[in-house]
Write a protein that binds this DNA or RNA. Sequence first.
DNA 1: GGATCGCACTGATCCATATCAAAAGCAGCA
DNA 2: TGCTGCTTTTGATATGGATCAGTGCGATCC
Lengths: 257, 257
Amino acid sequence: MSSFGKIASLRHPVAINLADRPSASACEDCGARHLGLCDALSDEELVFLSSAAHRMTLPTGRLFLEEGDAAQFFYNVNSGTVRLFKALPDGRRQITGFAGPGHFIGLAATDMNVVSAETMEPVQLCRFSRAGMRAMFEEYPALERKLLDVAMHELVLSQQQMLLLGRKTALERIASFLLSWAQRQENCNTGKLPRPNAKLTLPLSRTDLADYLGLTIETVSRSLSALKKEGLIEIPNIHEVVLLRPQALENIAEAAN
Amino acid sequence: MSSFGKIASLRHPVAINLADRPSASACEDCGARHLGLCDALSDEELVFLSSAAHRMTLPTGRLFLEEGDAAQFFYNVNSGTVRLFKALPDGRRQITGFAGPGHFIGLAATDMNVVSAETMEPVQLCRFSRAGMRAMFEEYPALERKLLDVAMHELVLSQQQMLLLGRKTALERIASFLLSWAQRQENCNTGKLPRPNAKLTLPLSRTDLADYLGLTIETVSRSLSALKKEGLIEIPNIHEVVLLRPQALENIAEAAN
DNA sequence: GGATCGCACTGATCCATATCAAAAGCAGCA
DNA sequence: TGCTGCTTTTGATATGGATCAGTGCGATCC
């Protein structure tokens, strides 16, 4: 099997399709190869890992990991989107992140899960036993290296999110979110501003958005309307946003003045 | 040299005193050994790593790592406390965490630092070159394993903090903070509630507290006063808090009702 | 002991966002 | 085509915490 170019950083979501390696191909959005782990491992190692994984397909709205439960497994998403969240007894909910193709779920756990995970669309996953994780690391240090990269990248994102939740206004949160989501889907996190008129697809409901940004759905809706009225974005339908003036959004998001 | 008991999880801060191993001893607060990395490495490996580290001492209020700068080094704290934060151009600040003895700083970076770091008291650190990190990992996989544990634990904490910042009220934030700080210093993060009348030492100013909890100093002050008036805490002086009724604090913190 | 300075606390007011209420859009379905 | 139920948007009002404005208080210095 041919070798693939090294992936320099984790700006692009790291994908492993352990149970289905032939499906690894150029990303239709950005052209990069979502190989991640596969890239770091020999064929022999891959065979081993594939056998350790269980491939599953889940329908929309399935809660497959619950905060407080024993952490038996960790997962790697192959397709679809998953929301990760924590909740308070009275129902208040904070979404801590979204996991798309290539993302890992359930790494940041001790013996219990610290977040819940629920599918937002039909989702394909590879499931790994946490118990066997240590043993896998012993045999395949490359796996561990990749996971360390992933964890450190997650940490960077969560620090950004803390700034957003702790100190930004509603409008700034929405602007920040639109840009970061564009990064995520359009330029594969190159750090560049999306081009004008970039079209975003949001699999999220307004409720998800509110729970991710620490706002209410009404405030989310009003802020989006405000950006629309100012001519910075267009909203053709609920699940699409067009970024007419990304630079202006960036100025709002980073409170540049 | 004698071998030390395995450290089962990362609930206890992981300390490495690479440049000064003899100082590793039983924690006066909890009796556990703050060995962390040392525990995972052989003496021979330790000697290598010690030579890779530069030991430094910094005075109070020293900004030694700035967001946006090239990420040359990462650090391990030996003594003292460091605040990690992100700031917006207009001066708003969000503290993303505090690093005490045994904590790592600068791991979650790509080629640039994503947070700034500033000492809150006189601090002793070991400094490592990031450039040499990969090479160190090749030679000493145990180092990587430990860092993965650390990163995953940080992730757990930051998810908790997102819930706090996005969804909790001022009073809930203060109560949550007091309990988590107690965990940190008193029972070495065993997950248990601190005992009644546990005394906390806060090296933080009210401004730090506000910037960590996403509040203003006035609200922090008012919330602490409210808890005092209700008889849940006592505040002998600015840098000390006595938790008279931890269970009641927990009820507030987790919105149990 | 008194003056000065930097924080912390407390009170009064304001405002950004939450909450409450209703209308509008939209998908599924008979 | 219209009915039903759900989500989103928009409008009116309420409120938690921010902002503004003192006051208090302990440390340092003379």
